[in-house]
Simulated scan of single mutants.
Amino acid sequence: MDLLINEPPLLVLPTLAKLIGLNESIVFQQVHYWLRKTSHEYDGAKWFYKTYEEWHEEFPFWSVATVRRTITSLEKQGLLISTTKYNKLGIDKTKWYTINYGNYKKLMSSRVAQNEQSSCSNCADGALKMSNPYDQVDHTNNQRILTENTTDINNLVVDKEAPPEKSEKANAQTAFEFYEQNGFGTLSPYVAEKIGTWIEELSEELVLEAMKIATENNARNWKYVESILKNWANKNFKSLADVEADRKRFEIQKQQRNRGKGMLEEKIPEWFYKRQSTDQEQPKSKNIDFEAERQKILEKLKS
């Protein structure tokens, strides 16, 4: 059972969309299409590279943030593999992509098994109705309840665009949303690419924190945010706890400096300077002729 097609148009099969999500199935199909076109082969697999800006050009009906979330979803499902290790320059963060066809085949096999199990279950239900006609009404009601519950569960899993259950994490703003909603300006593809790179380099919570600091300092521009992120990267920060610890260290050092400036220096009394001045005014002592002085004293005594 193969749900992939080998044609250029943006097509998607409903069964694949139901399994992995509508947006995911569109991107997944395009990745398969580009892998058939590419000539790059590394580590026994075909790869192609594409920036998020280029993905956005290919899917202009989505925002860069939507493209990024969709690709991340495919990576988490184990269907899409991405890396930057094939770039010639270390600073180049362009992603290379390939499909984990092994996981894809397992997904298809699981789907076939579920269909067969569902078919056998329907056969068993029919046999139950035939052998026990008096229980047909109760069984029908139970089956209806089970089907409704199952449908609700399937809708919850399949509808990737439906909002998740209310939770603090689910309601938190993404870095892309914060940028657009807090006066930084329109999110261009270039800045979106930069934000995504820093999210991968550090974390989304640190990128958000840098934006909040920029907002508090009334410096709503990406260059200021990136300077903060570079500083944290140089310090090897990995979480908000690292930022908070560094902030506390800075406050302690600041308090110590302020206390040092506030301490009064020991004041030298004025008499010291007067004594020093007096000593300087006194003439330097000369060599005294003690014998001549003794003779003068003796003559005065005789007289």
Rank of each mutant, 00 (worst) to 15 (best):
H56T: 09
K235L: 12
T51M: 06
E270C: 04
E266Y: 13
P60H: 08
L10W: 11
Q253W: 09
V157E: 12
D135G: 13
Y101F: 09
L146M: 08
R144I: 08
L187S: 06
I153H: 09
K106T: 07
V191Q: 02
F272A: 05
N142T: 07
K300N: 11
E58M: 09
N221R: 04
V207G: 02
R144Q: 11
N154I: 07
I153K: 13
E270H: 09
G262P: 01
L13M: 10
S131E: 06
I26G: 04
I99V: 14
K300V: 11
S227H: 05
S25P: 08
Q173G: 06
Q173I: 08
G260W: 08
Y190T: 11
L128T: 06
W232V: 00
N231K: 03
N218L: 09
L208V: 04
V12H: 03
D152K: 14
L13N: 08
A175F: 06
K261H: 10
L22R: 09
N258D: 15
N100K: 03
Y33F: 13
A172C: 06
A170I: 04
V157P: 01
E75G: 07
K230R: 10
I26H: 15
V31Q: 02
I297W: 12
N103E: 09
S82V: 05
W271T: 09
K18P: 00
K160G: 14
A172G: 06
V191S: 00
F237E: 00
H56P: 01
S63V: 03
N6R: 07
E165Y: 12
A170K: 05
F272Q: 09
N149Q: 12
W232L: 00
V207N: 03
K212A: 07
A192G: 15
K106F: 12
V64E: 08
F48P: 09
G183Y: 04
D92W: 07
A127I: 15
W55S: 05
L208K: 09
L229W: 01
G185C: 05
T38D: 10
T147Q: 13
N218A: 12
Q255G: 08
Y190F: 10
E200G: 10
D43S: 10
T83A: 06
K85Q: 11
K212M: 10
I288C: 03
I26P: 00
E54Y: 03
N100V: 01
A192Y: 05
S25F: 00
K261F: 12
G262N: 13
L240W: 01
R36L: 02
N142Y: 13
S303F: 12
V137D: 13
E209D: 13
K194Y: 07
V112E: 15
N217E: 15
K160V: 13
T51S: 15
L89M: 05
P164K: 08
G185P: 04
Y42H: 15
T98I: 04
I199N: 05
L35G: 01
V12A: 11
K76E: 13
K248A: 13
V157S: 07
L80F: 02
A241E: 15
Y179V: 00
Y101W: 12
L13S: 08
E281S: 11
E204P: 08
G102P: 03
Q181G: 00
L298K: 12
R275P: 01
G260T: 03
K223M: 01
L107C: 05
A214T: 02
F290G: 00
N218K: 15
F184Y: 15
T38F: 07
N287G: 01
E57Y: 14
L156M: 12
I213K: 07
G262V: 01
P269C: 01
